Amino acid sequence: MVNKDEIKGKANETVGKVTGDESKELKGKAQGAFGKVKDKIEDGFEAVEDKAEEVIDKIKHKK
């Protein structure tokens, strides 16, 4: 899933390339990378949450 940081990053990177502004281009690349890392972290939290719910359900059904 693409988040707004990745979209903003790609936009800044493109503007930087078109205008020749290396600083803006690099900012866009960094922003896009941040967005990707943020997605991975969120995916990890969701996986942990799902696993925790599975364990809780198993415990509830044993009673």
Score class of each variant (00 low, 15 high):
I7L: 09
K60L: 12
G28D: 04
E54G: 05
I56V: 15
K17V: 14
F45D: 09
K17P: 03
A11T: 15
K4Y: 09
L26D: 15
G20K: 06
G44M: 08
K27C: 00
E13N: 06
Q31E: 15
K27N: 07
K27I: 10
G44D: 07
V15I: 15
V37S: 11
F45S: 06
D50Q: 13
V37N: 11
G9R: 05
V15G: 00
N3I: 03
G32W: 02
E22G: 10
T19P: 02
D43N: 15
F45N: 10
K36Y: 12
Q31W: 01
A47E: 14
K29N: 07
I7V: 10
L26M: 14
D57T: 07
D57I: 05
I41L: 08
K4W: 05
E53F: 03
D50E: 13
D57S: 07
E13Y: 10
E54Y: 03
K60Q: 11
V55S: 01
V15D: 04
D57P: 00
L26Y: 14
E6W: 00
D21K: 05
A30H: 11
I56E: 09
D57W: 00
E22W: 09
V15E: 14
E53K: 15
E46F: 04
I7F: 12
G35D: 03
K60E: 14
V2W: 04
E13H: 11
S23Y: 06
E54T: 15
E54K: 12
K24N: 10
G35W: 02
E6C: 05
I56R: 02
I7T: 04
F34M: 13
A47T: 14
G20H: 09
K36C: 12
G20V: 01
V48S: 08
A30F: 06
V48W: 09
G16N: 07
E25Q: 12
E46H: 03
E46Q: 11
V48F: 07
K24G: 01
G35F: 01
E46I: 04
V55M: 06
G32R: 12
G28C: 01
F45A: 13
H61L: 14
K36S: 14
K17H: 07
E54R: 15
T14Y: 06
M1C: 13
G28I: 01
G32P: 00
E25H: 11
E42V: 02
I59R: 02
N12T: 00
V55A: 13
E13M: 08
I41C: 09
K36G: 13
I59G: 03
K8S: 03
G35Q: 02
K24D: 04
S23A: 09
G32M: 05
K58H: 06
T14E: 11
M1S: 14
N3K: 06
M1W: 12
V18I: 15
K17F: 05
D43H: 12
